[in-house]
Design a protein around this nucleic acid. Structure first.
Length: 506
RNA sequence: CGGGGCGUAGCUUAGCUUGGUAGAGCGCCUGGUUUGGGACCAGGAGGUCGGAGGUUCGAAUCCUCUCGCCCCGACCA
C-alpha cells in the first residue's frame, strides 16, 4: 500500500453519515443484510451486544418485580381488530400467514391448506397477551400481573436499515395489568426510569425523557413516554418507550376483575419495550471514523491482548506472559461480570490485528512483546484515544488499574455524548430561526445540521403535522419539567404551556 | 405503493454507446522474506456478467419480460 489511510473507515462521519454507519456495522462485523428483504443477520459480535443488553435489562426487570413469559408468534387476525387505533397503526405493516402446507406442483412448491383465519406475525403483542390476561384475571387479588417477554416481532417496513429499522427485530415487551389507574401510571413511569438509567449508565447514552405528542403516540395508548437520544448527525432517535394504555386494551380484550367493592371493573394496563435498535443507537452515538466504540459497561470483551512474537525463541515466553495476564484479568469483576478478555494469538501482523480490534470497538488493547518481557511492561491503548496512542505500563499493575480505566472510558463517553447534545440543543423563539436551524446549506447533499430545538407549541396536532410536512421536523418529546416555562407558540402565537423538543428523527 | 438509479469474483468496480465469448484493485489460499501500527515478493483459487426469453453465425453489450437492491417520497421502534 503506497499511502496509509488516516482513518479506518471511509467515508468519515461528516462526509456521509448514513454510509459511514453502514461501514461501522460492516467493519465491526456486527451484522449483514440477509437475502430476505429487510431482515438482518446479526453476527456474533453484534449479538454479543444484544446479549449484554438483555442480561442487564433482564436483571433490572426482575429487580422491579417482573417475570418472563412467552406468548405465540402468531396472532389471529381478529385479535388485532379489537382495538380501533391499534389496527389503524399496524395494519399497513403486517406479515400475514394464510396457509399451513406446501404442495408440489410442476416441480414447484406452492402454498396449500388455507387457514380458516389468517394469522398475523406479531408486530407487538398487546392483543394476544391481553387475551391471556382476560383468562387469568378474575379478582382484584389476581392483580397486578407483571410480565415481560423477550421476542422477535415483524413490521413490514418500507425502508429498512440495519438495526434501526428492520422488518424483523428483536426486542423485549413488558405487559402489565393493574387494579388502579394510579398504579398503572406509576408502573409506566417506573419502567421509563429503568430505561433511562440503563441507557445512561450502561450505554453511556444520555437521554431526554418525556411524553410523546398525540401524533407520535403508540396506536391504542393513552399516553406514550419515551427516552430520546441525539446521535452524531444531530438527529433524534427514540431509544425506548413506555405506554400507559389506560383501559383501552383491557376493554378490547375483556380484562375484567371483581373489585374490593364487588364491582366488575376493567384493569389498567401498560406496555413498554426496547429493541435491537438500541444497538443502532449505540453505534451512532459513540463510534468514530475508526469504527465502533463499545462502552465498557455494555462490552462483553473489555480487553484484547495481542502478543507480539517477532522471534521464534521468545514466542513461548511471550505467550506465557499474555496467558498469565489474561487469566488474572478474567478473575476481576467489572460491574457484576468478569472482565472479558480476548487473546489474539493469530499468526497475523500486529498492525492488522490492532486495526481489527479498533474497528470492533474493544475498550482496551494490550500488546506484550519480547522487549516488554524484559522490562516487565505492556503497551496499553484505549479506544477513546487516538489509534496510535499507547502507553507503556508495568504489567503487574494492570489488574489493579484496569477497572478504573474502564470506568474512566465509560464516564468519558457519557460526558462527550452529553456535551454534544448540549452543544446542539437550542432554545428557539422565532419561526425564522427555527426554519434556518433545520434547513441545510447544501440542498443537494445536506450536511449535518440542526439538533434539538426547544420551542413553544400550542399543543395541536395540526401544527405538528404542518411542521413535519414542511421541514421533516417532529416533536420528539414533551419533556418532564418541574417548573414549565409558559410562552407563545412559535407557529400560531397562541399560548404555550412549555417548550417541547423538536428534531429530525430516525 | 409513486419518482429516479443500479445489478459483472467475497468487496469496489472496468468493459456496454460502436456485439467477437471477461479485466483490475482490495480480500482469500500457498511458499518465502518479514513482523513493536493497515508489510513485501512469487505463485494460485475464485465469474454460466441477477433471472427468463428474443434478435444474431456470435450477447455482459441490442430488445422484451421478470426478480432484487439503493436513493427520494408516503409509513415506522
Amino acid at each position: 500500500m503506497s499511502e496509509k489511510q488516516q482513518t479506518a473507515l471511509s467515508p468519515k462521519r461528516d462526509q456521509d453519515f448514513p454510509e459511514w454507519y453502514q461501514q461501522v456495522v460492516r467493519a465491526a462485523d456486527l451484522a449483514e443484510n440477509s437475502e430476505v428483504r429487510g431482515c438482518m443477520v446479526i453476527k456474533p459480535w453484534g449479538y454479543a451486544l444484544w446479549e449484554r443488553m438483555q442480561g442487564v435489562l433482564d436483571g433490572m426487570f426482575k429487580a422491579t418485580g417482573h417475570r418472563n413469559a412467552y406468548f405465540p408468534l402468531f396472532i389471529p387476525l381478529s385479535y388485532l381488530e379489537k382495538e380501533a387505533a391499534h389496527v389503524e397503526g399496524f395494519a399497513k405493516e403486517c406479515a400475514v400467514v394464510t396457509h399451513h402446507r406446501l404442495e408440489s406442483k410442476d416441480g414447484k412448491l406452492v402454498p396449500a391448506g388455507v387457514l380458516s383465519e389468517p394469522l398475523v406475525v406479531r408486530p407487538t403483542s398487546e392483543t394476544i397477551i391481553g387475551a391471556a390476561y382476560a383468562r387469568w384475571v378474575k379478582s382484584w387479588r389476581d392483580l397486578p400481573i407483571l410480565l415481560n417477554q423477550w421476542a422477535n416481532v415483524v413490521r413490514w417496513e418500507m425502508r429498512p436499515r440495519v438495526f434501526l429499522r428492520t422488518a424483523e427485530f428483536l426486542w423485549q415487551e413488558g405487559h402489565t395489568a393493574h387494579e388502579t389507574q394510579e398504579e398503572a401510571e406509576e408502573e409506566t413511569m417506573k419502567m421509563l426510569r429503568v430505561y433511562e438509567t440503563f441507557a445512561r449508565d450502561y450505554l453511556a447514552v444520555p437521554v431526554l425523557t418525556g411524553e410523546k405528542s398525540e401524533g407520535e403516540r403508540f396506536p391504542g395508548a393513552v399516553k406514550t413516554y419515551c427516552i430520546e437520544a441525539m446521535v452524531q448527525d444531530r438527529k433524534a432517535i427514540q431509544a425506548g418507550t413506555s405506554h400507559f394504555l389506560g383501559q383501552n386494551f383491557s376493554k378490547a380484550s375483556g380484562i375484567q376483575y371483581q373489585s374490593r367493592e364487588g364491582k366488575l371493573e376493567h384493569a389498567w394496563t401498560t406496555s413498554w419495550g426496547v429493541s435491537t435498535r438500541l444497538i443502532g443507537t449505540l453505534i451512532m452515538m459513540h463510534s468514530d471514523d475508526d469504527g465502533l466504540v463499545v462502552p465498557p459497561r455494555i462490552a462483553s470483551t473489555h480487553v484484547v491482548i495481542v502478543p507480539i512474537t517477532p522471534k521464534e525463541e521468545s514466542r513461548a515466553a511471550v505467550l506465557e506472559a499474555v496467558n498469565h495476564l489474561a487469566s488474572s484479568l478474567r478473575a476481576i469483576n467489572f460491574h457484576g461480570i468478569p472482565i472479558g478478555v480476548e487473546l489474539d494469538a493469530r499468526d497475523l501482523g500486529g498492525g492488522i490485528k490492532n486495526w481489527e480490534w479498533i474497528k470492533k470497538g474493544v475498550p482496551i488493547r494490550i500488546e506484550i512483546g519480547p522487549r516488554d518481557l524484559a522490562q516487565g511492561t505492556a503497551a496499553m491503548a484505549r479506544r477513546d484515544r487516538g489509534p496510535k496512542e499507547k502507553e507503556f505500563v508495568p504489567v503487574d499493575g494492570i489488574p489493579g488499574t484496569i477497572a478504573g480505566i474502564l470506568d474512566e472510558i465509560q464516564e468519558g463517553l457519557l460526558l462527550r455524548a452529553t456535551k454534544f447534545r448540549e452543544t446542539h440543543t437550542r432554545k428557539i423563539d422565532s419561526l425564522e430561526e427555527f426554519k434556518k436551524f433545520f434547513t441545510p446549506q447544501n440542498r443537494e447533499k445536506p450536511e449535518i445540521h440542526g439538533g434539538f430545538a426547544l420551542a413553544h407549541w400550542n399543543g395541536s396536532k395540526e401544527v405538528e403535522d404542518q411542521v413535519k410536512d414542511e421541514l421533516k421536523v417532529t416533536i420528539r418529546c414533551i419533556p418532564f419539567e418541574d417548573s414549565p416555562e409558559p410562552g407563545v407558540c412559535l407557529f400560531t402565537g397562541e399560548p404555550s404551556r412549555q417548550r417541547v423538543v423538536w428534531a429530525k428523527s430516525y
